[in-house]
Design a protein around this nucleic acid. Structure first.
Lengths: 140, 140
DNA sequence: AGTCAATTGGTACTTTCGTATGAGTGTATT
DNA sequence: AATACACTCATACGAAAGTACCAATTGACT
Protein backbone atom coordinates (compact mmCIF):
# COMPACT_ATOMS: atom_id res chain seq x y z
CA UNK A 1 0.00 0.00 0.00
CA UNK A 2 2.78 2.43 0.93
CA UNK A 3 4.55 1.67 -2.31
CA UNK A 4 1.42 2.25 -4.36
CA UNK A 5 0.93 5.68 -2.75
CA UNK A 6 4.60 6.52 -3.33
CA UNK A 7 4.45 5.49 -6.98
CA UNK A 8 1.33 7.54 -7.62
CA UNK A 9 2.94 10.54 -5.92
CA UNK A 10 5.92 10.20 -8.25
CA UNK A 11 3.52 9.92 -11.20
CA UNK A 12 1.71 13.13 -10.29
CA UNK A 13 5.03 14.93 -9.74
CA UNK A 14 6.28 13.74 -13.12
CA UNK A 15 3.09 14.94 -14.76
CA UNK A 16 3.50 18.43 -13.23
CA UNK A 17 7.14 18.64 -14.28
CA UNK A 18 6.24 17.67 -17.82
CA UNK A 19 3.53 20.34 -17.90
CA UNK A 20 6.11 22.93 -16.87
CA UNK A 21 8.54 21.72 -19.52
CA UNK A 22 5.87 21.92 -22.19
CA UNK A 23 5.09 25.53 -21.21
CA UNK A 24 8.75 26.55 -21.51
CA UNK A 25 9.00 24.87 -24.85
CA UNK A 26 6.08 26.99 -26.13
CA UNK A 27 8.18 30.07 -25.45
CA UNK A 28 11.36 28.72 -27.01
CA UNK A 29 9.64 27.18 -30.06
CA UNK A 30 7.27 24.44 -31.23
CA UNK A 31 9.80 22.00 -32.75
CA UNK A 32 10.85 20.43 -29.45
CA UNK A 33 7.21 19.93 -28.34
CA UNK A 34 6.86 16.74 -30.32
CA UNK A 35 9.91 15.25 -28.60
CA UNK A 36 8.47 16.12 -25.22
CA UNK A 37 5.17 14.42 -26.04
CA UNK A 38 7.04 11.36 -27.31
CA UNK A 39 9.05 11.41 -24.08
CA UNK A 40 5.89 11.50 -22.00
CA UNK A 41 4.46 8.59 -23.95
CA UNK A 42 7.61 6.46 -23.53
CA UNK A 43 8.00 7.27 -19.83
CA UNK A 44 4.42 6.40 -18.97
CA UNK A 45 4.55 3.31 -21.13
CA UNK A 46 7.46 1.99 -19.06
CA UNK A 47 5.82 3.14 -15.84
CA UNK A 48 2.84 0.96 -16.85
CA UNK A 49 5.14 -1.98 -17.50
CA UNK A 50 6.91 -1.49 -14.16
CA UNK A 51 3.72 -1.16 -12.11
CA UNK A 52 2.29 -4.38 -13.48
CA UNK A 53 5.52 -6.31 -12.94
CA UNK A 54 5.67 -5.18 -9.32
CA UNK A 55 2.08 -6.20 -8.67
CA UNK A 56 2.38 -9.67 -10.19
CA UNK A 57 5.61 -10.67 -8.44
CA UNK A 58 4.23 -9.38 -5.16
CA UNK A 59 1.14 -11.55 -5.47
CA UNK A 60 3.28 -14.61 -6.21
CA UNK A 61 5.46 -14.12 -3.15
CA UNK A 62 2.48 -13.70 -0.85
CA UNK A 63 0.92 -16.93 -2.13
CA UNK A 64 4.11 -18.87 -1.49
CA UNK A 65 5.08 -17.73 1.97
CA UNK A 66 2.23 -16.10 3.85
CA UNK A 67 -0.59 -18.64 3.55
CA UNK A 68 1.45 -21.51 5.02
CA UNK A 69 1.54 -21.05 8.76
CA UNK A 70 -2.06 -20.16 9.54
CA UNK A 71 -3.46 -23.24 7.82
CA UNK A 72 -0.98 -25.61 9.42
CA UNK A 73 -2.20 -25.02 12.95
CA UNK A 74 -5.75 -24.50 11.76
CA UNK A 75 -5.51 -28.19 10.85
CA UNK A 76 -3.97 -28.96 14.23
CA UNK A 77 -0.73 -30.26 12.71
CA UNK A 78 2.15 -30.33 15.18
CA UNK A 79 5.69 -29.31 14.27
CA UNK A 80 6.87 -32.87 13.92
CA UNK A 81 3.82 -34.00 11.97
CA UNK A 82 4.38 -31.18 9.53
CA UNK A 83 8.02 -32.16 9.07
CA UNK A 84 6.95 -35.71 8.32
CA UNK A 85 4.32 -34.50 5.87
CA UNK A 86 6.95 -32.52 3.96
CA UNK A 87 9.32 -35.47 3.65
CA UNK A 88 6.39 -37.67 2.68
CA UNK A 89 5.40 -35.26 -0.09
CA UNK A 90 8.96 -35.32 -1.41
CA UNK A 91 8.52 -39.03 -2.14
CA UNK A 92 10.34 -40.57 0.83
CA UNK A 93 9.30 -43.89 2.36
CA UNK A 94 8.56 -44.20 6.08
CA UNK A 95 11.94 -45.85 6.59
CA UNK A 96 13.73 -43.02 4.81
CA UNK A 97 11.90 -40.36 6.81
CA UNK A 98 12.84 -42.22 9.98
CA UNK A 99 16.52 -42.04 8.98
CA UNK A 100 16.28 -38.38 8.02
CA UNK A 101 14.71 -37.38 11.34
CA UNK A 102 16.77 -39.83 13.46
CA UNK A 103 13.80 -41.68 14.91
CA UNK A 104 12.31 -45.16 14.49
CA UNK A 105 9.96 -46.19 11.69
CA UNK A 106 7.25 -46.80 14.31
CA UNK A 107 7.35 -43.15 15.27
CA UNK A 108 6.97 -42.09 11.67
CA UNK A 109 4.02 -44.43 11.24
CA UNK A 110 2.33 -42.83 14.22
CA UNK A 111 2.95 -39.33 12.88
CA UNK A 112 1.80 -40.30 9.41
CA UNK A 113 -1.42 -41.79 10.74
CA UNK A 114 -2.10 -38.64 12.75
CA UNK A 115 -1.47 -36.51 9.66
CA UNK A 116 -3.98 -38.59 7.71
CA UNK A 117 -6.60 -38.12 10.40
CA UNK A 118 -6.03 -34.36 10.52
CA UNK A 119 -6.04 -33.97 6.76
CA UNK A 120 -9.02 -36.33 6.51
CA UNK A 121 -7.41 -38.66 3.97
CA UNK A 122 -6.79 -42.40 3.70
CA UNK A 123 -3.57 -42.69 1.66
CA UNK A 124 -0.28 -40.85 1.41
CA UNK A 125 -0.96 -39.91 -2.19
CA UNK A 126 -4.16 -38.18 -1.08
CA UNK A 127 -2.25 -36.44 1.69
CA UNK A 128 0.13 -35.01 -0.92
CA UNK A 129 -2.80 -33.82 -3.04
CA UNK A 130 -4.50 -32.16 -0.07
CA UNK A 131 -1.31 -30.54 1.16
CA UNK A 132 -0.68 -29.04 -2.27
CA UNK A 133 -4.23 -27.74 -2.49
CA UNK A 134 -3.83 -26.07 0.87
CA UNK A 135 -0.44 -24.58 -0.09
CA UNK A 136 1.17 -25.78 3.10
CA UNK A 137 4.27 -27.22 1.43
CA UNK A 138 7.54 -25.24 1.19
CA UNK A 139 8.02 -26.30 -2.43
CA UNK A 140 6.06 -26.55 -5.69
CA UNK B 1 6.03 -12.38 -32.43
CA UNK B 2 3.34 -11.24 -34.88
CA UNK B 3 1.32 -9.79 -32.03
CA UNK B 4 4.31 -7.83 -30.72
CA UNK B 5 4.92 -6.28 -34.15
CA UNK B 6 1.22 -5.46 -34.48
CA UNK B 7 1.08 -3.83 -31.06
CA UNK B 8 4.13 -1.69 -31.75
CA UNK B 9 2.67 -0.63 -35.10
CA UNK B 10 -0.48 0.48 -33.30
CA UNK B 11 1.69 2.34 -30.78
CA UNK B 12 3.54 4.25 -33.50
CA UNK B 13 0.27 5.06 -35.27
CA UNK B 14 -1.23 6.33 -32.02
CA UNK B 15 1.84 8.48 -31.45
CA UNK B 16 1.50 10.07 -34.91
CA UNK B 17 -2.21 10.74 -34.40
CA UNK B 18 -1.49 12.40 -31.08
CA UNK B 19 1.13 14.59 -32.73
CA UNK B 20 -1.45 15.73 -35.25
CA UNK B 21 -3.97 16.42 -32.50
CA UNK B 22 -1.41 18.47 -30.60
CA UNK B 23 -0.72 20.60 -33.71
CA UNK B 24 -4.40 21.33 -34.19
CA UNK B 25 -4.71 22.29 -30.57
CA UNK B 26 -1.94 24.86 -31.00
CA UNK B 27 -4.08 26.60 -33.58
CA UNK B 28 -7.28 26.54 -31.55
CA UNK B 29 -5.60 27.57 -28.30
CA UNK B 30 -3.12 26.56 -25.60
CA UNK B 31 -5.54 25.71 -22.78
CA UNK B 32 -6.45 22.26 -24.11
CA UNK B 33 -2.79 21.25 -24.64
CA UNK B 34 -2.37 20.19 -21.04
CA UNK B 35 -5.36 17.84 -21.30
CA UNK B 36 -3.91 16.26 -24.41
CA UNK B 37 -0.57 15.66 -22.71
CA UNK B 38 -2.36 14.18 -19.71
CA UNK B 39 -4.36 12.01 -22.12
CA UNK B 40 -1.21 10.76 -23.79
CA UNK B 41 0.30 9.91 -20.41
CA UNK B 42 -2.80 7.99 -19.28
CA UNK B 43 -3.18 6.14 -22.58
CA UNK B 44 0.42 4.97 -22.68
CA UNK B 45 0.32 4.09 -19.02
CA UNK B 46 -2.54 1.69 -19.68
CA UNK B 47 -0.87 0.43 -22.84
CA UNK B 48 2.11 -0.48 -20.67
CA UNK B 49 -0.15 -2.29 -18.23
CA UNK B 50 -1.90 -4.15 -21.04
CA UNK B 51 1.30 -5.26 -22.78
CA UNK B 52 2.73 -6.71 -19.60
CA UNK B 53 -0.49 -8.53 -18.78
CA UNK B 54 -0.56 -10.09 -22.25
CA UNK B 55 3.01 -11.28 -21.95
CA UNK B 56 2.55 -12.84 -18.50
CA UNK B 57 -0.66 -14.71 -19.22
CA UNK B 58 0.79 -15.98 -22.48
CA UNK B 59 3.79 -17.45 -20.68
CA UNK B 60 1.49 -19.15 -18.17
CA UNK B 61 -0.64 -20.76 -20.86
CA UNK B 62 2.37 -22.09 -22.74
CA UNK B 63 3.75 -23.66 -19.57
CA UNK B 64 0.46 -25.39 -18.85
CA UNK B 65 -0.47 -26.83 -22.22
CA UNK B 66 2.42 -26.94 -24.67
CA UNK B 67 5.14 -28.71 -22.70
CA UNK B 68 2.99 -31.78 -21.95
CA UNK B 69 2.90 -33.93 -25.04
CA UNK B 70 6.53 -33.85 -26.16
CA UNK B 71 7.86 -35.02 -22.81
CA UNK B 72 5.33 -37.82 -22.47
CA UNK B 73 6.56 -39.75 -25.46
CA UNK B 74 10.13 -38.62 -24.86
CA UNK B 75 9.80 -40.78 -21.75
CA UNK B 76 8.24 -43.58 -23.80
CA UNK B 77 4.99 -43.47 -21.85
CA UNK B 78 2.09 -45.09 -23.69
CA UNK B 79 -1.42 -43.64 -23.76
CA UNK B 80 -2.69 -46.06 -21.14
CA UNK B 81 0.33 -45.70 -18.89
CA UNK B 82 -0.14 -41.93 -18.93
CA UNK B 83 -3.81 -42.28 -18.00
CA UNK B 84 -2.84 -44.47 -15.06
CA UNK B 85 -0.18 -41.99 -13.99
CA UNK B 86 -2.75 -39.19 -13.92
CA UNK B 87 -5.20 -41.14 -11.78
CA UNK B 88 -2.35 -42.19 -9.53
CA UNK B 89 -1.28 -38.57 -9.06
CA UNK B 90 -4.82 -37.67 -8.07
CA UNK B 91 -4.48 -39.97 -5.08
CA UNK B 92 -6.36 -43.04 -6.31
CA UNK B 93 -5.41 -46.57 -5.24
CA UNK B 94 -4.68 -49.29 -7.78
CA UNK B 95 -8.11 -50.78 -7.14
CA UNK B 96 -9.83 -47.45 -7.72
CA UNK B 97 -7.91 -46.84 -10.94
CA UNK B 98 -8.92 -50.32 -12.10
CA UNK B 99 -12.57 -49.44 -11.55
CA UNK B 100 -12.25 -46.07 -13.26
CA UNK B 101 -10.64 -47.58 -16.36
CA UNK B 102 -12.77 -50.78 -16.34
CA UNK B 103 -9.84 -53.22 -16.14
CA UNK B 104 -8.44 -55.55 -13.50
CA UNK B 105 -6.14 -54.51 -10.71
CA UNK B 106 -3.43 -56.76 -12.18
CA UNK B 107 -3.44 -54.66 -15.31
CA UNK B 108 -3.04 -51.49 -13.33
CA UNK B 109 -0.14 -52.99 -11.41
CA UNK B 110 1.57 -53.84 -14.67
CA UNK B 111 1.05 -50.32 -16.00
CA UNK B 112 2.18 -48.74 -12.76
CA UNK B 113 5.36 -50.81 -12.69
CA UNK B 114 6.11 -49.81 -16.27
CA UNK B 115 5.55 -46.16 -15.41
CA UNK B 116 8.02 -46.45 -12.52
CA UNK B 117 10.63 -47.96 -14.81
CA UNK B 118 10.16 -45.22 -17.40
CA UNK B 119 10.18 -42.41 -14.85
CA UNK B 120 13.10 -44.07 -13.06
CA UNK B 121 11.44 -44.10 -9.64
CA UNK B 122 10.71 -46.71 -6.96
CA UNK B 123 7.50 -45.50 -5.32
CA UNK B 124 4.24 -43.90 -6.38
CA UNK B 125 4.97 -40.80 -4.30
CA UNK B 126 8.20 -40.32 -6.25
CA UNK B 127 6.31 -40.81 -9.50
CA UNK B 128 3.99 -37.96 -8.53
CA UNK B 129 6.95 -35.73 -7.71
CA UNK B 130 8.68 -36.48 -10.98
CA UNK B 131 5.53 -36.02 -13.03
CA UNK B 132 4.94 -32.62 -11.46
CA UNK B 133 8.53 -31.56 -12.11
CA UNK B 134 8.17 -32.54 -15.75
CA UNK B 135 4.83 -30.72 -16.08
CA UNK B 136 3.17 -33.72 -17.68
CA UNK B 137 0.05 -33.61 -15.52
CA UNK B 138 -3.17 -31.92 -16.69
CA UNK B 139 -3.70 -30.30 -13.30
CA UNK B 140 -1.73 -28.36 -10.66
C1' DA C 1 2.52 -63.56 -43.10
C1' DG C 2 5.48 -61.98 -39.65
C1' DT C 3 7.18 -58.68 -36.32
C1' DC C 4 6.54 -55.35 -32.86
C1' DA C 5 4.41 -52.70 -29.34
C1' DA C 6 0.44 -51.92 -26.52
C1' DT C 7 -3.00 -53.72 -23.64
C1' DT C 8 -4.83 -56.93 -20.85
C1' DG C 9 -4.71 -60.45 -17.22
C1' DG C 10 -2.91 -63.98 -14.06
C1' DT C 11 0.01 -66.21 -10.08
C1' DA C 12 3.15 -65.88 -6.45
C1' DC C 13 5.90 -63.55 -3.45
C1' DT C 14 8.08 -59.56 -0.87
C1' DT C 15 7.87 -55.14 0.84
C1' DT C 16 5.72 -51.13 2.36
C1' DC C 17 1.90 -48.91 4.30
C1' DG C 18 -1.76 -48.16 7.50
C1' DT C 19 -4.43 -49.12 11.87
C1' DA C 20 -5.08 -50.30 16.57
C1' DT C 21 -3.45 -50.35 20.96
C1' DG C 22 -0.56 -49.51 24.71
C1' DA C 23 3.03 -47.18 26.99
C1' DG C 24 7.10 -44.25 28.54
C1' DT C 25 9.16 -39.49 28.60
C1' DG C 26 9.29 -34.59 28.79
C1' DT C 27 7.21 -29.98 28.86
C1' DA C 28 3.89 -26.70 29.72
C1' DT C 29 -0.40 -25.21 31.82
C1' DT C 30 -3.79 -24.99 35.46
C1' DA D 1 0.66 -31.87 42.11
C1' DA D 2 -2.19 -33.01 38.37
C1' DT D 3 -3.65 -32.62 33.65
C1' DA D 4 -2.85 -32.18 28.94
C1' DC D 5 -0.18 -32.54 24.94
C1' DA D 6 3.70 -33.67 21.91
C1' DC D 7 6.96 -37.03 20.90
C1' DT D 8 8.78 -41.34 21.16
C1' DC D 9 8.62 -46.54 20.39
C1' DA D 10 6.83 -51.34 20.17
C1' DT D 11 3.90 -55.25 18.64
C1' DA D 12 0.67 -57.29 15.73
C1' DC D 13 -2.36 -57.66 12.01
C1' DG D 14 -4.45 -56.65 7.59
C1' DA D 15 -4.39 -54.08 3.36
C1' DA D 16 -2.02 -51.99 -0.38
C1' DA D 17 1.76 -51.65 -3.22
C1' DG D 18 5.46 -53.43 -5.86
C1' DT D 19 8.29 -57.18 -8.41
C1' DA D 20 8.96 -61.00 -11.36
C1' DC D 21 7.40 -64.03 -14.12
C1' DC D 22 4.37 -65.58 -17.98
C1' DA D 23 0.77 -65.41 -21.57
C1' DA D 24 -3.20 -64.10 -24.78
C1' DT D 25 -5.08 -60.58 -27.80
C1' DT D 26 -5.08 -56.79 -30.86
C1' DG D 27 -3.65 -53.25 -34.20
C1' DA D 28 0.04 -51.28 -36.97
C1' DC D 29 3.81 -51.52 -39.85
C1' DT D 30 7.08 -54.14 -43.17
Amino acid sequence: MKKTIFIFSVLIAALLILFQLSKYSLISGNTSLEYIIAGIAVVFFFVGLYINKRRKTHVNISQKEEIDIQKIDALGLSKREYEVLCKLAKGHSNKEIASLLFVSESTIKTHVSNVYTKLDVKRRTQAIQKAKELHILPFS
